[in-house]
Design a binder for these strands. Structure first.
Lengths: 243, 243
DNA sequence: ATCTTTTCTGCGGGATCCCGCAAGGTCCCG
DNA sequence: CGGGACCTTGCGGGATCCCGCAGAAAAGAT
């Protein structure tokens, strides 16, 4: 059994490597990659089915790497080991998990023991392990309260990319008015809505831009989510008959 | 001589601590804080004039901590030790450095030796040390080419917060038209400008939102810059006669 | 099958944004 | 002092955004 580490911080890499050796005596080889791209290649070559990776790497971010790895071999087991539990990350991960796949998400702030336990659970006992904090986020994000629909999240990303209503309508096959409805919905859920009539005069916000701001502050969006979205967008644009 | 470490990752903290002991035999005490707030308090109490800190900490970010520390004792020497060289960070730091202060900015990806050298240079020889990569950013950011004026940067932040033209005009004591001029300027420099007339039809962007998107993608803005700006904004709002 | 709830859609209008045009300002240089 | 570079401001208008209103379509529920 071999384990592949994908993590760009050398310190964390060596810490991980040691933790793996300690927690998994049956492991007879640890490979290391220092960015997503190299990780994908290594995973393809060495056919390792056991991966521990960081999200947010500078060169190619973890979610993209995981997506392509899982696309090639869905039975691969991946433990995400990240600093943050941003909603953007959690959402990004759960969006790409193949059905029935075994995976884990533990924070770097977790204790030594928790990490080792997670390693054994995922790689040996085939059991998913999600950090409580992350799990909490997931619940909150999917629950009725403060929960964002897939549609709402999608349109949030679209305006964050800077698309106009019309462009969004075109991309999502909707009428312009429907796009605006969803936007309204989004504004309400983000607590940015302006009840009309009341001339709260100063401190007036541009709803569209304000929505993006609070989404960023709440970590509903983050840099890597934006990067992914931008890549998707330009792929879509290329596919369009550019008149 | 005592050195204070402000860094939220325990691994990096212990690595730093060891590096300090190795590089600075004259150091007779290393203190540690795991977030900006605790760091400020410790700095105040122990009167340490030598600090190494991370930017991007979860609780209270490094730039804010540095600002208050330098406000209280401008002669404090601070070495920023960060993962990234985002323009937002570099700009944020150089904005708060007191005149004549001794400080440093080295990336975590730097070698062992470079870190130790930087420690000696700053704390013993009173000489500033800026990582070449960071320095490069600074040059590019201040040079004529691709350089953003303070005014432009300011208005970028304002729209990223979601303010309307009118609100910005009020806040910055300008006419609405001037705000729009600066915006136009910004759009051009961000390469988002729409030459008019040409109905590039699809792929049409909302300039305001698009500008924010590319600023984020280029790391001209990032989460912590936004957080600081948001704090400033609400302080300003509170100071306003709310009609 | 009928009723309810939700979503989609067009219309209309007020507010905002984006920007060309042109009339002052300020500051510096020769 | 005149000229040039730059910033600011007002005006005007077309495009976009935000959203109430109400009918049509779709998805569930009883």
């Amino acid at each position: 059994m071999k384990v592949l580490i994908i993590e760009d911080d050398p310190l964390h890499r060596s810490y991980l490597s040691e933790a793996i050796r300690a927690a998994l005596p049956e492991c007879d080889g640890v490979l290391e990659a220092e960015n997503g791209g190299a990780g994908e290649r290594l995973a393809r070559d060495c056919k390792s089915a056991h991966i521990v990776m960081d999200l947010q790497m500078s060169v190619r971010n973890g979610i993209e790497a995981a997506r392509t790895i899982w696309k090639e071999r869905p039975e691969t087991r991946i433990l995400f080991w990240s600093n943050y539990s941003d909603e953007a990350y959690v959402r990004g991960v759960s969006r790409i998990v193949p059905v029935g796949a075994v995976y884990g998400y533990v924070l770097k702030s977790a204790s030594d023991d928790r990490l080792k336990l997670a390693l054994r659970s995922i790689f040996i006992e085939s059991q998913c392990v999600i950090d409580r904090e992350v799990r909490g986020m997931q619940q909150r994000s999917l629950g009725t309260i403060n929960g964002f629909t897939e549609a709402e999240y999608e349109i949030l990303v679209d305006i964050a990319l800077g698309l106009t209503d019309r462009a969004i309508a075109h991309r999502r096959n909707l009428s312009v008015r429907s796009v605006q409805n969803r936007l309204q919905q989004l504004y309400i859920k983000l607590g940015v809505y302006q009840p009309l009539g009341g001339q709260s005069d100063e401190g007036r916000f541009n709803l569209r831009a304000r929505a993006i701001a609070v989404a960023l502050l709440r970590k509903l969006l983050n840099h890597s989510a934006l990067e992914r979205a931008e890549a998707d967008l330009s792929a879509w644009l290329a596919r369009q008959p550019h008149n």
